[in-house]
Design a protein around this nucleic acid. Sequence first.
DNA 1: GATGAATGAGTGTTCATTCAT
DNA 2: GATGAATGAACACTCATTCAT
Lengths: 215, 215, 215, 215
Amino acid sequence: MSKNHKRSCPVGRWQRRKEARPGEIIDAALELFCEKGFAGTRMDDVARHAGVTKGTVYLYFENKEALFYALVNEMVVPQVERAENMIANYTGSAASLIEILIKQWHENIIKTKLSGIPKLIISESGNFPELAKFYIDNVIQRGRRMMARVIEKGIERGEFIKCDPDYVSRVILSSMVFTAVWERSLASLDDETYDVEKFFDTQFEIMLSGLKKTK
Amino acid sequence: MSKNHKRSCPVGRWQRRKEARPGEIIDAALELFCEKGFAGTRMDDVARHAGVTKGTVYLYFENKEALFYALVNEMVVPQVERAENMIANYTGSAASLIEILIKQWHENIIKTKLSGIPKLIISESGNFPELAKFYIDNVIQRGRRMMARVIEKGIERGEFIKCDPDYVSRVILSSMVFTAVWERSLASLDDETYDVEKFFDTQFEIMLSGLKKTK
Amino acid sequence: MSKNHKRSCPVGRWQRRKEARPGEIIDAALELFCEKGFAGTRMDDVARHAGVTKGTVYLYFENKEALFYALVNEMVVPQVERAENMIANYTGSAASLIEILIKQWHENIIKTKLSGIPKLIISESGNFPELAKFYIDNVIQRGRRMMARVIEKGIERGEFIKCDPDYVSRVILSSMVFTAVWERSLASLDDETYDVEKFFDTQFEIMLSGLKKTK
Amino acid sequence: MSKNHKRSCPVGRWQRRKEARPGEIIDAALELFCEKGFAGTRMDDVARHAGVTKGTVYLYFENKEALFYALVNEMVVPQVERAENMIANYTGSAASLIEILIKQWHENIIKTKLSGIPKLIISESGNFPELAKFYIDNVIQRGRRMMARVIEKGIERGEFIKCDPDYVSRVILSSMVFTAVWERSLASLDDETYDVEKFFDTQFEIMLSGLKKTK
DNA sequence: GATGAATGAGTGTTCATTCAT
DNA sequence: GATGAATGAACACTCATTCAT
């Protein structure tokens, strides 16, 4: 009847949260790995950030590395799929699709904790090449192909000038991805602040006016 | 990762001890820090890579952190100065200057070990905010201003359309810097290889045709 | 291995809690302690082997150590009593009594899980001196006296030559006990297999012909 | 000139003992592993017993298990070889050779730290089957064959009655080995003390008079 | 009674740093 | 100057034990 009947049992040490735990731990790990790096993050810290003790982390993840892998798996693939679906169903112009993709990148990645992933993968690529490879194959390459297909469509539709869709895709994505990396690393230390939205608008305008056919 | 990075004396951090130039140590450290991260690199490895023993590293650098600071200081400032001098003396068009800057970035940074620096700073920014701050102030901001001045000149000279030079500068630099980061992290793991030169050409063309005034 | 074995309350150590008989737990513990040692055995394993969960073990035994003590107490004393009764009622020759004792050792100890006890006690004597002491006083010494009495009787009856019954007892028992230890430790790893029965026959024959008076 | 010129440098933290270290560590490990078991022994304890700190142990042994393996390797093989050489060169009677072997077992094994090895191997056989196998193949089996060959020779020379040398060998060795195990485990806890020498004398006499041919 | 999620003390192992040689 | 044996603090991971359900 009352909305808080769950709280009738006092919040204590023995709360069971089997369902929620892994997600909480992964969130904590993402934040900390991204901030301090994999090696620089203590399992104890991850645990404390997730509101549990060290031992509990090991109930859900075999070891630190498994936690890292789970984190990337969990966080990354759904995003790619969402974007691919969006593109598949889109019927408007290539230019407007690019605009939407950039906007969504801003809303769903840059503004969320997900923006930590690219920085994390890049930072740890030397120590976890296999994981980096997974990310390249399942995120980067798919992203690249998505954007390339959009460009291609724009060329086919007569919207865009002739160009190599793969390279144009890389150029557009590079500053999008860099922005995520930047926001999660140096942005907060830079006293010359900027407006991410305006950044993306600028990028969009220049790129598009460079790509658009002038009739 | 020790939590007292910040407590180590900030004075004298930037000097190497002695006259001798343990450039090999710095080179080894750059390579290894970039590959494995600061925490993941053992002083022993740095030493061995430099052809000396562990103790010797400590003759020249007070500790691991000092080595990191020295590395960044040593490697970074000369580049910026070189670029600034180049711009100051340049008399041609803004467009051609941008082309030259991109080419030099490719030749002098991307193709050399120096490209490891941005990846390293980004990766370790959470653990070494002071160092990151130094890098931002002495490299990033100066680079941004350089590029912005070029754009500004282009607008003044009637070459370019009206735009916000600061944001355009950020857009151009973002994919340039990202390319360095990419080459030092994921590029070697990506089976879809690409030609960096063509990447920069594509970027240059699109950006420029987006910026150029059409008479 | 905690250093405070000795501090755990010595009273009540020998009792199982509750009426129910968690014989399966003790069986599981015997098997696992014997195989992996006390420290090397996880309570979780004991529980799983006994078909219950970890918590349940603690319903019946105060802690791991208490389980060990209960195990030894449970398993050991009945055997000694059975043997003592057998001897008390025996009326035949000393030689045939020895033969019977060896046979029974083979049947009731060597061939059963009980053979694990000596190996276990020996292995853990350093960590559980009190328990080892209990075993010595209640099993070893009583066994030694039993065998010594048989020898003595043999001497008295004129069957055996004059000898020190205590030492002869020790010699006979040493290979009997060793066989139990061997079977529970190295036997299965030795590719030079042997027949335990023939081993005991050989021992019996040699010892007896060495002991018997030649008229 | 003075005998203690080595002591002229004060005993301190920085003494280098590269040559001596491994042996000291192995000695400490043997004692502690035997007393507390492998799992129950802390590397810290081993180190302290050897007069060093934990880190130093890892300079010489890759890990705890490697230390265990090294210990067995180091300690065991030389003994077997010594015994085999002795037998090969022996020209006297089989009976006297057995007597010598028992005496040497007493002097060189039982009375020394080496007597800890059998107990240790037996205790840890479940956790280190490979090491146990090594011990069986290189020590036990060779010991068994040695003793069997002596018995065989005794039979050939007409000293001993017909019997199966392999089984007789096993019977004799079982109480010899057991004595080592006993001395390193329960002996010190047993208030019924005994004289090991007399034990072996008793064994020798009974066995021999059981084996000897009566003309 | 039984469960199993959670705890936290304990231990193996690593590695930056020191300093006698 | 250079070495490398030694140190010891730090951290990943384990597991006996607890207790809310």
